[in-house]
Simulated assay, not measured.
Amino acid sequence: MTADGAAPALVVGLGCQRGCPAATLRALLDQALQAHRIELAAVKALASIDLKRDEPGLRELAAQLALPLLYFSSAELAGYRPRLSHQSQIAFERTGCYGVAESAALALAEQWIQAPAKLLIPRQKYAQATLALAGAA
């Protein structure tokens, strides 16, 4: 809880392979939140890399959850490299950043709360997708 009694704003960063269905992303989200005992209601927004702007699964998940979905460029995400729990050379070769889910979660959390953020759930990998959750440090 924050000082005003509100639940802290948490954001989810997502990375996925082309064509990853919303159901896969939702299963990963539900699994991660359940494992960390976090309510879905605490999640205020989703984030990914701008290369995924046209990815139907991400857009469908955001619509299902009625959450905003924001995108960041690889240049915006690259600066988070030192803070990642896992640095993927493959992700770098494909996107220009070393971890889409963690970087996007941190970038959006810091934009959202206007303060430093930390990873509350580090990179989780599942089938065709990755997820990370960030919030106030």
Rank of each mutant, 00 (worst) to 15 (best):
T24I: 03
A41H: 12
I113Y: 14
L70Q: 14
R18A: 08
L84H: 07
G19S: 03
L61Q: 08
Q128H: 15
L67R: 13
A35Y: 04
T95Q: 07
G15Y: 06
P56E: 08
G13C: 00
E55H: 06
A78W: 11
P56V: 00
P8E: 02
A117S: 09
A3Y: 03
S73R: 09
L108P: 09
R26P: 04
A45L: 13
Y126L: 13
G5Q: 13
T24W: 07
A109G: 03
Q87I: 09
A117H: 09
C20G: 00
P8M: 02
G57H: 09
R123C: 00
L120Y: 12
I38E: 07
D4N: 15
Y126R: 05
R26M: 11
L67Y: 09
L14T: 01
A62G: 00
L69H: 02
S85I: 00
A105V: 01
Y71C: 09
P116G: 06
A78R: 06
S48V: 06
A101P: 11
R123A: 00
P21G: 05
T24P: 00
R26T: 00
L70W: 13
L120H: 05
A117C: 14
L65M: 11
G57C: 12
L70T: 11
P82K: 10
L28R: 05
Q31A: 15
Q17N: 14
A6F: 09
S74E: 04
A35S: 10
R26G: 08
L120S: 03
A66V: 02
A22N: 04
T95N: 09
L84D: 01
A3N: 12
V12P: 03
Q17L: 14
R123D: 09
A107S: 13
L106E: 09
A41E: 13
D30T: 14
D50W: 07
Q128N: 14
E55S: 02
W112I: 06
L67T: 04
A109V: 10
G13E: 04
V43A: 06
A107D: 08
D30W: 15
L70M: 12
T24A: 12
A66L: 05
H36D: 07
A107V: 01
A91H: 01
V43Q: 05
A41K: 09
E102G: 10
A115F: 12
Q17W: 08
L70P: 05
A9C: 10
D54N: 13
L67S: 05
G19Q: 13
A9I: 03
Q87C: 11
E60C: 11
P122S: 09
V12G: 07
G5S: 14
T95I: 13
W112P: 01
L14V: 02
S48N: 06
L61C: 05
L33D: 05
E93G: 01
G96Y: 14
L69D: 10
P8D: 01
L58H: 03
I121W: 02
Y71M: 02
G57N: 12
Q17V: 02
P68Y: 11
P8R: 07
E93Y: 08
I49Q: 05
G99M: 00
R123H: 05
A47W: 03
A42Q: 15
A75Q: 15
L67H: 06
F72P: 04
L120V: 01
I113V: 13
L58C: 01
K118A: 10
E102K: 08
A63F: 10
A23K: 12
D30C: 14
A129C: 15
C20T: 08
A127I: 03
Q89V: 11
R83Y: 09
I121V: 06
A23S: 15
A115Q: 14
